[in-house]
């Protein structure tokens, strides 16, 4: 079955976000997200690098040895990232100073590219690999731009270079720890959204007093013949009950083991 573009992008961008969930490519995000402009430039570079490397990995490099492939990811990364960043910094009218000179080798050794090519592109065809590259590029880009916007507003008091008239600036936001704090909170929010806990069974209406339970011992019925056919509203409820029973069994078995040890 061919993967749908929408599903792949939704999963790759948010549910398995490369930066927030897989925790790869943190160095470029921290370095490049000091302003929205530099975040946009870095997003474009990462996107181009991911797309080209994924296409090559899914078509040409499939039969190569793994250690050769990884070296080639880095070489391709350098060949793409260095010229594009140099071009953005020096030859465009944006006249941007990205300030990444000494960190360029760290940015070029992009773990997002290596992870996505090695885990997905090599094992799949061209179409899924391109979809995955787009999703990973989008996921990284959204995080970079979000961090860039928050850090620029907090640290410089501007947005896209325009002053916002903020009376004080938190220069700590422009430091790496400022970005890590933002990434931590963003990862927590994403985890909260995508961690679905099993829904608990619906509560019974609270009665005014203790419920009366009658046990008819003399009914003459065999206990094993009592009807045990439970009905559940949905699968989640059933799974929740099953997991609770399993936990109970495990706790009993652990208790008995402890007693045996004693």
């Amino acid at each position: 079955m061919k993967p749908k573009l929408g599903d792949v992008i939704a999963k790759g961008t948010f549910e398995y976000n490369p930066v927030l969930i897989q925790c790869v490519g943190l160095c470029p995000v921290i370095l490049a997200s000091t302003s929205v402009q530099s975040a946009l430039a870095m997003t474009a570079v990462t996107f181009a690098d991911l797309l080209i490397t994924s296409i090559l990995a899914s078509t040409v490099m499939k039969k190569w040895q793994r250690y050769i492939r990884v070296v080639f990811y880095l070489i391709i990364g350098m060949l793409i990232i260095f010229p594009i960043l140099w071009f953005i910094e020096n030859k465009t009218i944006m006249n941007m100073t990205l300030g990444m000179r000494i960190f360029l080798p760290l940015i070029a050794v992009n773990s997002v590219t290596a992870v996505h090519c090695e885990q997905f592109a090599v094992k799949n065809g061209l179409r899924p690999a391109v979809f995955d590259a787009i999703a990973a590029g989008l996921g990284t880009g959204i995080v970079m731009i979000l961090c860039g916007a928050l850090r620029e507003i907090g640290g410089k008091g501007t947005f896209l270079g325009y002053p916002l008239g903020v009376s004080f600036k938190l220069s700590g936001m422009l430091m790496p720890y400022g970005c890590l704090v933002i990434l931590g909170f963003a990862a927590a929010v994403l985890n909260k959204i995508y961690t679905r806990k099993p829904r608990r069974a619906k509560k019974e209406p609270v009665s005014s007093g203790p419920e009366e339970v009658s046990l008819d011992i003399d009914s003459g019925k065999d206990p094993e013949q009592i009807d045990m056919d439970f009905t559940f509203d949905d699968d989640e409820e059933y799974e929740y009950l099953l997991s609770s029973v399993n936990e109970l069994i495990e706790s009993f078995s652990m208790d008995s083991e402890r007693e045996d040890e004693q």
């Binding site: 004080f168 600036k169 938190l170 220069s171 700590g172 430091m175």
Partner: peptide, 8 residues
């Protein structure tokens, strides 16, 4: 305090 020292 460290964050305040860095920022201000």
């Amino acid at each position: 305090f460290a964050s305040a020292a860095v920022c201000f």
